[in-house]
Computed example of a mutant assay.
Amino acid sequence: MRELVPVSSEEVAERLAAALDGSGPALLPTAPGEAAPPSLTGPVKEEIALVVATSGSTGHPKGVLLSAAALRASAEATHARLGGPGAWLLALGAHHIAGVQVLVRSLLAGEEPGVVDTSHGFRPDAFADAARSVLDRPGRHYTSLVPTQLVRLLADAGAGLEALAAFDGLLLGGAAAPAELVERAREAGVAAITTYGMSETCGGCVYDGVPLDGVRVRLGEDGRISLSGPVLASGYRGASNAAFADGWFHTDDLGRIEPDGRLTVLGRADDMIITGGVNVAPALVERVLCAEPDVLEACVVGLPHPEWGQLVAAAVVPADPATPPSAQRLRALVGARLGGPCAPKRIDIVAALPLRGPGKVDRRSLAEMLINRER
């Protein structure tokens, strides 16, 4: 067995190399100001290098057990897809898998990562300052962001966006990225690549709908996505391992395979809204809403309704708070493109969406917030 040591996100970079080569203990990164959940501590198997704490949407902490081999396989496959190793800029917390993988890739590339100062939140000017030290080096340059960070860089349209456009690749993950956001970024010269994955797959393992080398994707009869390959975690600590079976990780996400073979992720199965007997995928409604220039962000949830079972509700963050979009117009757009049942019966204009983890919208908190607004 191997010792497991809780470390702050700032310490991960200092101790990661020893965790990967076996000369040091395995690491359990913690968020700033937080202690490691007691249920996740204690010795681990020798091959485990990292335990990533995640509560997902359940609120109960579980530890994803990641081997050094899986972490390296993910980093190597990423470099192969991007065109080779390069210098990385870290703009995400190293207690999340996306941040950890920036550090793993940097180690394999033999490059010291640049680090964005996020002590006062993510700021475009701080991103631009940190990017200079990376972009001044020869070779290829990469970074990884969540959609909310990209939204802020595009909205600022200053030095931060200019710096981002100079990178050879931007991995965009942590949460679903609306197609319109990706299109806007690419039009601004950003080499944006959408990623799909989770801590259980050492981060993103499907890039722009195409699995990384060695990764396999299949869909169940109900459309649930299953993933396999050398990037898979060794299981959970503090939770059932039922999702890991026969070399596959069975996710709670729904997807479809497009005619060109690419994977489209439709969202979590438990996020699906059933209104009047009709299934509504929130992600599809959100894409229509976010396509509007006066909508900065949007999230769609189901609220209890005595007649329909659930009511389709949308929270919209306006691009300009002084001139919010018309709820009637947005409702009509969704209805015209997706059908009447998908049109939100309720649209609330909000200043910001509640978040959990690296840029993921906290749908449960949002639903509670909308319910409380009615009281």
Results as ranks from 00 to 15, higher is better:
N241W: 00
R140M: 10
D271R: 00
A18V: 07
L65Q: 08
A131V: 03
V300Q: 03
S23E: 08
S8C: 07
V215F: 10
A192M: 10
P85H: 13
P282M: 03
I347E: 02
K62I: 05
R363Q: 07
W248Q: 09
L353N: 05
L65Y: 04
L181N: 01
P321D: 07
H60C: 00
E183C: 00
G84F: 12
V146W: 03
A31S: 13
A13D: 13
A35M: 06
G339P: 09
L90W: 00
V12F: 04
S9F: 04
A319C: 11
P321S: 06
L164P: 04
G359M: 11
D270C: 07
N241K: 03
A91C: 15
T143A: 13
N279L: 02
A367W: 02
V7P: 01
A87L: 08
S326L: 11
P61G: 00
T54K: 10
E187S: 08
E374D: 10
M1K: 00
T194Q: 13
T54L: 09
L330G: 07
S240N: 08
L355C: 03
G302K: 06
I97P: 02
Q101H: 14
R287W: 01
A130C: 04
A19M: 11
K360C: 13
A163F: 12
G302C: 11
G173V: 10
V215H: 02
A352F: 08
V334R: 08
G93Y: 02
E14N: 08
P324G: 11
P37C: 10
A343E: 03
P324R: 12
P324D: 13
C202P: 07
P38D: 14
G220V: 05
E11K: 01
P138T: 05
G204C: 04
I273P: 04
S365H: 04
G84M: 06
A36S: 11
R184M: 06
R356C: 10
V278G: 07
R137Y: 03
K345M: 06
G309V: 11
I48K: 05
P38Y: 12
